[in-house]
């Protein structure tokens, strides 16, 4: 089929527009992070710095006591611990939960219940959770955030995985049961490999959600021990004189771990694994 030239043009224009809207802010962030502070405040604005300035990054990558770098690196560590733990716990728990919701009807009420809770605004839970954590002595610890994030990620991951389990032909699993596989073996050997793309998506989105969470982190943490990156960045921006170069450098570095995770997981995101087992 031959496409009209105008249509082709519009199509490409749309693609370019989309690409620019994604790339430009990041490019600008990067440029800001390597500019001289003076370059960023002069008028008219200098779009390209004359000299490359890596001072911001040097300031961030140091553990000197009381330095900006210490704040940043601890926040990076806290964010990593919290996001990775919450993601792993949630997805691990979501797998059997989703399978059970998908295969054993009559439990739907529970699923919709968790989703309803998931829909409620965080503000509603902040106070009761705060009191609970305070009683448990968990305030300002990574544990508090891991627990809270699990309550957000678990319903989401369960829902996503359940919908994908629903799509699997049940006969394949019954064949495995006849072959002598136990329920857990069916999940491990048959069902999970077949929903690998969804599993990758669940891991990725859960990680991003936890990585970017700001509200709970702001309220339940207050120093190096537990503060996560979004809160730390917020702190950097809240000073009297905002250091744009520093904030952009933090932004660049904070975006790296999710980027690496995405690159790593995207290979499993290709779909079509289930093709060929059954007629259809």
């Amino acid at each position: 089929m031959k496409r009209h030239p105008l249509l082709t043009f519009l199509l490409y224009a749309a693609v370019v527009l989309l690409a620019l809207s994604i790339v430009l802010p990041i490019a600008w962030l990067f440029i800001m992070s390597i500019s001289q502070p003076t370059d960023l405040t002069t008028l008219p604005l200098k779009w390209f710095p004359e000299t490359i300035n890596l001072d911001q990054y040097k300031r961030l990558l140091t553990l000197e006591e009381g330095s900006t770098g210490e704040t940043f690196l601890y926040a990076l560590r806290n964010s990593t611990v919290v996001a990775v733990s919450a993601t792993l716990i949630s997805v691990l728990a979501a797998i059997p939960a989703a399978y059970s919701f998908s295969r054993f009807p009559g439990r739907q009420g529970l699923l919709y219940g968790t989703l309803a809770v998931y829909m409620m605004p965080p503000v509603a839970f902040v106070l009761p959770l705060y009191l609970t954590f305070s009683h448990l002595g968990l305030l300002n610890s990574s544990w508090a955030l891991i627990i809270v994030y699990c309550t957000m990620l678990l319903p989401f991951a369960t829902w996503l995985l359940k919908n994908n389990f629903d799509l699997l032909p049940y006969e394949i699993e019954q064949a495995a049961i006849i072959d002598g596989a136990s329920q857990l073996q069916v999940i491990w050997h048959i069902a999970l490999p077949l929903i690998k793309p969804a599993l990758g998506a669940a891991l990725l989105f859960a990680l991003l959600m936890a990585w970017d969470e700001f509200f709970y982190a702001l309220i339940y943490t207050n120093d190096l021990r537990a503060k996560t990156l979004p809160v730390a960045i917020g702190d950097f921006a809240a000073g009297r004189a905002t250091d744009y170069g520093l904030i952009s450098a933090v932004g660049m570095l904070a975006a790296l771990p999710p980027l690496v995770a995405a690159l790593f997981l995207q290979r499993s995101l290709v779909s079509g694994l289930a093709a060929g087992g059954t007629k259809g």
């Binding site: 064949a175 495995a176 006849i178 087992g277 059954t278």
Partner: peptide, 25 residues
């Protein structure tokens, strides 16, 4: 042993592994 109308093969396993699965279990 049952043979299903839809074949119900394990899509992610090779033919060999499809046949070997029951014995492995």
């Amino acid at each position: 042993a049952m043979v299903f109308q839809s074949y119900a093969l394990y899509p992610h396993k090779s033919v060999y592994d499809n046949m070997a699965f029951g014995l492995k279990m």
